[in-house]
């Protein structure tokens, strides 16, 4: 009697079991595919910053590979490693400044709905990355020279600011040649105009007498009048 019951039970249960398995499998596949897509979507979001070149150089230096034909990897002196770390810190400072300045603007834009959520996600990831990057640099600095972790970012900050200042000043100095040439040309034309005017006047003046005209021409030829130059000297000290 038991056997009988058992047989029937299995057969009638097959359908619900099949139903459950199909349901389970389909749910599982859906969730895995969905999650994978979402993960790949967020991974495909463009990173906020371009690749960190200085960091790559620093880490490449620590993992130098032997050149062809040689057994040992070349030894990198500590001073070079320290310089590379400092460059890395300078780049980090630049990135932090950029993050800080764009944060406010981004938040306002987000509140107004002018930018999408993607941008915010990218930004938050960049923020997190830079925090970890800073911690990493500090610990590396302390490993290279005891106590350097405390001051490396101060130094990096000054370096970044100093470099910015020097590029601006260089840009100004770089214009000097073209400005000078421009002024030379301009002065020539002013001179010519002046001479023309004088010629015109001297035709009129020659009736009276040429001596006075000679004096007039001499004092008048320099493009900038000497009187204004004197004013400058006394005007500012």
């Amino acid at each position: 009697m038991f056997d009988n019951l058992f047989d029937i039970d299995w057969k009638s249960l097959a359908l619900p079991f099949a139903y459950i398995t199909v349901l389970g499998v389909s749910l599982y596949t859906f969730s895995t595919i969905y999650r994978k897509r979402k993960a790949s979507q967020s991974a495909n979001l463009e990173p906020w910053f371009p690749p960190h070149l200085q960091r790559n150089i620093y880490l490449s230096l620590l993992h130098m590979e032997p050149e062809a034909g040689q057994e040992k990897a070349p030894k990198i002196p500590d001073s070079v490693v320290r310089a590379a770390l400092l460059r890395r810190a300078v780049e980090d400072i630049r990135r932090i400044i950029q993050i800080r300045t764009s944060k406010q603007a981004l938040n306002t834009l987000l509140l107004r709905g002018s930018v999408g959520d993607d941008l915010n996600q990218r930004f938050q990831r960049a923020e997190k990355e830079i925090e970890e990057e800073l911690r990493d640099v500090v610990s590396e600095a302390n490993a290279l020279a005891p106590g350097w972790g405390n001051s490396i970012f101060q130094s990096a900050n000054e370096i970044a600011a100093n470099q910015a200042l020097r590029t601006k000043l260089d840009a100004i100095e770089g214009r000097s040649e073209s400005e000078k040439q421009w002024w030379e040309k301009r002065r020539e034309t002013i001179k010519k105009d002046f001479m023309k005017e004088l010629d015109g006047e001297s035709v009129k003046g020659s009736v009276k007498g040429s001596d006075d005209d000679g004096v007039l021409v001499d004092s008048g030829t320099p493009a900038a009048t000497p009187g204004s130059a004197k004013k400058k000297k006394t005007g500012k000290k």
């Binding site: 001073s79 320290r82 600095a141 290279l144 020279a145 001051s151 101060q154 130094s155 000054e158």
Partner: peptide, 8 residues
């Protein structure tokens, strides 16, 4: 001593 830049 360590040839690191001194604080500013």
């Amino acid at each position: 001593p360590n040839q690191v830049p001194p604080p500013p």
